[in-house]
Design a protein around this nucleic acid. Structure first.
Ligand code: FES
Ligand code: FES
Lengths: 144, 144
DNA sequence: TGAATAAAAGACTTTTTTGTCTTTTATTTT
DNA sequence: AAAATAAAAGACAAAAAAGTCTTTTATTCA
């Protein structure tokens, strides 16, 4: 459904959100541990997200990644678009060159609905909204 | 969502279904053209499906791929399971090692629903059921 | 039986994705 | 200013997915 890079991206962004909610910054090593991902791999992904303005960062001692007020209101759909593009939101489920009403694939009518549900799920999930549940250990960003 | 191999597989199986509905067999070249896929690539995928019994084939002149009565009742979910495994049906959307109620990821509750919808869409879609619409050119297996 | 046909099998290449390592740049603190 | 810290950048490697090519095997038909 998502690429590995995108899965890591979402988990990282939610991790940063929770850790940085009272102005703190969080380093790449802590992020990698917190979401159980390869350190340098998630680092590169976060650089992309920073260039697009979805997360902020600061170099040097006491530096790290964080989310400002605005970024808290980005949605997971924004993250997905940066990392995986928008084929998940608009592409054909069976891989036809383009999804269209004029030449629909056999799954089109059902799939369109589901694709919309996915979009709605991601669009309505703002980065800041899971903070409390993550802190209470009611939601998790890594397994075991 | 699906791998390329799986997209081709679904399209191929529906193509075979439609072409073979009155006992005819269809060759790999015609299939590849009919669904706009690489010939040898889809050939290999169909070999897997044949070993699992989802499609039938016959070598030699006038041979080719076809679906028998039983195979017509397989579902797209069966095809997906053979080609992509069942992670789409049971895996965590954010890539946690396992999806569970005990340690749910932030998307778990919403995603579980969507995953179920996908499963239902694929499980209820039997291989034979698109034949008429494909023949009438109301549904399509390739773009442009 | 022999030629033609078509799938099966397997080796191989290319591309994409994922992951690692090293060097550079910016920032802070002493 | 110097040392320490942490992200940024970029080169590189490994693995997986996608795609290609050649040879073999089974079947039919003349
Ligand atoms: S054409 Fe396939 S999903 Fe719309
Ligand atoms: S734990 Fe992530 S979908 Fe269930």
């Amino acid at each position: 459904m998502f690429s590995k890079a995108c899965e890591y991206a979402i988990r990282a962004v939610l991790f940063i959100s929770q850790k940085s909610k009272d102005g703190k910054k969080v380093g790449i090593r802590e992020i990698a541990k917190g979401i159980d991902s390869p350190e340098h791999f998630i680092a590169k992904i976060l650089q992309d997200l920073r260039r697009k303005g979805l997360v902020q960062s600061q170099k040097g001692p006491a530096g790290g990644f964080y989310l400002d007020k605005e970024s808290m209101n980005y949605s997971l759909a924004d993250v997905v678009r940066v990392v995986d593009g928008d084929s998940l939101f608009s592409g054909c489920g069976l891989g036809l060159k383009q999804c269209s009403e004029k030449k629909p694939c056999p799954l089109h009518h059902t799939f369109k609905q589901i694709r919309g549900d996915i979009y709605h799920m991601l669009e309505s999930a703002k980065l800041g909204e899971f903070n409390k549940q993550l802190e209470k250990n009611v939601l998790f960003l890594k397994g075991e």
